[in-house]
């Protein structure tokens, strides 16, 4: 069996974000990208451990993104991925997750894919939409919020453990299947320096997205962002007026709930 892991390089969590001149996204100037979002790294680690346990012959890594996404793929190869495929977009192409899923589906379709692993969600848009949309385009089952995965190989069903609010479920699922990991193996490996040097010699294919998408039936809908906004700068705290501690608590909770919407 062979696995495909989908990855997306995203800005570092502590990046200072600014609105781009276009107003629809952030300004990439000065933003540092993590080679893969944390969740994707966990997904890749899971795939590599399964491969090391004998479940897969090959783990391939796919990304849809601008040329700089190649660095993410190289990192994935240095972690232990066998081959990479970059479906290349232009740096200023705005990709919404639904559209990405359609392109990604055609890329994955061209590879053996008994298991397709995706991270829980990307670290930037945090949409978590790609996994099941990918399953739909590929016409195969998909499961999200997966907390554990057992693959015995040889085409036998996978054991999938997933989180639901009503309890944890253990499912038996025949491959091929798309799995979106809630959390993958803890502590993804850091590529060693020798493996970074070796990864340079692993195959990494690049294809323009227009070509990949031309294989897709029909034109998928695009819904790119119309506006990107940052919260207004802090101007000092709104101090709660109160007569009694209970009143302070009620007022604060109301603000957090209705104004800040964080409760």
């Amino acid at each position: 069996m062979e696995a495909v892991v989908c990855i997306k390089p995203v800005p570092e969590a502590d990046s200072r974000l600014r609105v781009a001149a276009s107003g629809v996204t952030y300004d990439p100037e000065g933003v540092r990208y993590t080679l893969n979002s944390t969740y994707d790294e966990a997904a890749l680690e899971e795939a590599l451990r399964l491969k090391e346990a004998g479940a897969f012959e090959k783990v391939r890594v796919v990304s849809v993104g601008p040329p700089r996404a190649e660095e993410g793929l190289r990192y994935a190869l240095a972690m232990g991925g066998d081959e990479g495929l970059l479906v290349e977009t232009r740096p200023d192409d705005l990709l919404d997750p639904g559209f990405t899923a359609a392109v990604l589906a055609e890329a994955v379709r061209s590879l053996p894919h008994d298991l397709v692993l995706v991270g829980r969600r990307a670290g930037d848009d945090e949409a978590g939409v790609v996994g099941s949309a990918l399953g739909e385009h590929l016409g195969i089952p998909s499961f999200a919020f997966v907390t554990g995965l057992t693959v015995s190989g040889g085409g036998s069903p996978l054991k999938v453990r997933r989180f639901t609010e009503a309890g944890e479920e253990l499912l038996s699922v025949p491959p091929p299947v798309v799995i979106s990991l809630l959390k993958g193996a803890q502590d993804p490996r850091t590529p060693t320096l020798p493996n970074i040097l070796k990864a340079r010699r692993k195959p990494l294919l690049r294809e323009p997205w227009t070509e990949v998408l031309s294989r897709h039936p029909g034109a998928p809908v695009r819904a790119p962002a119309m506006r990107f906004e940052l919260p207004p700068p802090r101007t000092g705290a709104h101090l709660v007026d109160y007569q009694s501690p209970a009143e302070a608590a009620e007022k604060l909770v109301k603000l957090l709930r209705e104004e800040a919407k964080v409760l």
Partner: peptide
Amino acid sequence: TPEQRELQGLASKF
């Protein structure tokens, strides 16, 4: 080179 940036990235992460 991309390789140098990767080595730098490894060191920076460490």
